[in-house]
Design a binder for these strands. Structure first.
Lengths: 197, 197
DNA sequence: CATTTTGATGTGACATTGTCATACTAATTA
DNA sequence: TAATTAGTATGACAATGTCACATCAAAATG
């Protein structure tokens, strides 16, 4: 006698896992409810017992990704033997890494409507982690402004890399270098406001 | 007696225009070959006389957008009464403007495979225009590095704005301000290399 | 324990869509 | 005038998201 609640929960997470795998392997076009069901060992209509629409299944994948990323950055933030700017660089590179390793997942994260409460919450967690790291470098009062700029820059780098518009043959730079430049530019800008003039 | 070549060319551009309008009005989901045909005054199968696949029709829309953007930036580049940094800011804002006015078109531009020769050519034209403007500010030798960073930043700002992840209520900044900060940060960084130390 | 209820799952059906094969039509050409 | 051809219309098909309904076992109820 298998408890029904457990079996249902297992099916649900199997569906999410299956959909995630299909997304990574074949892109959005490969995430078919029929394929998801087949890989999860159930039939094509089963997902509708757990998700109202296909979009909600995808949203859950995005939420998981946001949360996992927030966890990583939070962990990274606690690292004591690293300068603030080094921590910031690593945090930004963490985002870019997702874009490289799981490009389809990355695209899904940023195409999921940000007005969805769950998605917004998880994405907000990541943003807050970023903000705290930025504040360590530029101070509380400027953290929002510079945080927005740094996040935009990192996302831009990741997005252009995975769309192929930042080909290394033409631009001669990679994401790591761009992140370093960006952090340096902001750090020197902040320091100059006090020290130089 | 209407010349057939002319009629065909008219149909072709009507298809592209119809598809562009549908994209702007209703997003990618609204761009159906049937809807495109109907709006262009032909039937659902007609597009296949001009485009091998639906994807090619979309690519043409993206190419037009890239070219139009490159034209605007080229025009902007010739403006004499504007400092190099002002020209750069305006160029970056031109990209962001597309994201605001035609979000679906903007998304299409950056989701069209960059390995498509036509699309790559048009996008390359825009990048070269950017590069020239950047070179005016930071010099030829650093133009590639800073150009890549500036373009990433601008695209990141535009993309985050249209995905809703840069809500002004939370971040207290808009695209204009971020672009200004970015250009200032780079300018001051470059000047400091010479002047300060 | 017997019965009823309930929620997850399987299956059939339907509309939509991209795409192909085919037929038709009018412009071009021989 | 007859033949060719390029553009277009139409029918058909497979894939897909989604709904309605049937089924079946676990859980609640008596």
């Amino acid at each position: 006698m298998v408890k029904r609640a457990e079996a249902a929960a297992a099916t649900r997470s199997a569906l999410v896992r299956a959909a995630s795998e299909l997304l990574d392997e074949g892109g959005p076009g490969a995430v078919t409810l029929r394929a998801v069901g087949a890989r999860a060992g159930v039939s094509r209509g089963a997902p509708y017992g757990h998700f109202e629409r296909k979009e909600h299944l995808l949203t859950e994948i995005a939420v998981n990704a946001w949360n996992s990323l927030a966890d990583k950055v939070e962990q990274l933030r606690a690292d004591p033997d690293a300068t603030p700017s080094a921590r910031l660089e690593r945090a930004l590179l963490t985002l870019i890494e997702v874009g490289r390793r799981q490009p389809h997942l990355y695209a899904l994260m940023f195409s999921t409507p940000a007005d969805d409460p769950e998605s917004a919450g998880a994405a907000g967690r990541l943003q807050d982690q970023f903000l705290a790291i930025v504040a360590d470098l530029v101070g509380e009062s400027d953290a929002l402004r510079y945080g927005a700029l740094l996040m935009s820059s990192a996302h831009g780098i990741a997005a252009l890399e995975l769309s192929g518009h930042l080909a290394k043959e033409k631009w001669k730079v990679g994401g790591e270098q761009l992140v370093r430049m960006q952090v340096d530019a902001i750090r020197s800008g902040v320091e100059n406001a006090d020290a130089c003039h």
